[in-house]
Design a protein around this nucleic acid. Structure first.
Lengths: 126, 126
DNA sequence: AGACCAGGTTTCCCCATGGATACCGAGGAC
DNA sequence: GTCCTCGGTATCCATGGGGAAACCTGGTCT
């Protein structure tokens, strides 16, 4: 974690993006953007995620100040996760990214098909 | 790769982002945005990347239609990688993301420190 | 007392990513 | 001929992320 000579885009940025854009973060974030959720609410909302991964994701997001963990001292204690102001600032960038993905998915699919075809051809008649 | 029931943000989008925002893509992309580069130019520009990883990154980006591989039939054949028009459309979203990262890095660092401190305290006096 | 839910933690395991290293064929440079 | 560069491919191995599943500590219900 030493900050020696860094090149463009720096490991620091990359690491941050890895923490915030990892496999389940986007789903969790998009869920928490609509309303605060309890742990098992999130599990039900994102059935594919395992407890372990959800816990890890929430901890990571919490550590980076993107979500808050609130222990509600009601009768049997509830845990409520909510997005922070900092977390909210993350939406626009993500939305831009997802918009790009949506808009260009067809072009990308075409590119992939073309690439795979070329590859296959070169394997056959190469 | 079957498209069964998908939830918000879809695996499709996630997978795409994984392909395009992986460890070395940002560096390669930022390099190719300035000028077309040959393989070993890229290696020299991004010394940390290994041949294997650079090859993999370029193939992946090529497959997704983001960069082009051009075989220049000069005397000893050169390979020139350049960004495609589709690839260029990727810049704004990435820039927005990096701008977010830069702008909020201090807040995030503070959040991490606070989190780590809380954790340590709870381990000590828990 | 037994069953059940919330909110996890822990353990085990698999497999994909990535680094390091070696090799390789073609084409100059000496 | 010998060495170097270019543009890779092939191989080995370590690390780590993520899934499955068990366990656990409350608290409620009945």
């Amino acid at each position: 974690m030493d900050t020696e000579d860094e090149f463009l885009i720096g490991p620091t940025h990359r690491e941050l993006l890895d923490q915030v854009l990892d496999k389940w973060s986007l789903s969790v974030l998009s869920e928490l953007c609509e309303r605060p959720c309890r742990f098992n609410e999130l599990r039900r909302a994102i059935p594919q995620v395992t407890q372990k991964s959800l816990t890890a994701t929430l901890r990571r997001l919490e550590r980076n100040g993107v979500v808050e963990r609130e222990v509600v001292s009601t009768r049997p204690v509830a845990i409520r996760y909510r997005i922070t102001p900092l977390g909210k600032t993350l939406r626009p960038p993500i939305d831009v990214l997802l918009a790009w993905a949506s808009a260009n998915m067809p072009a990308i699919t075409r590119a992939r098909d073309a690439f795979d075809l070329r590859e296959e051809e070169s394997r056959m008649g190469g």
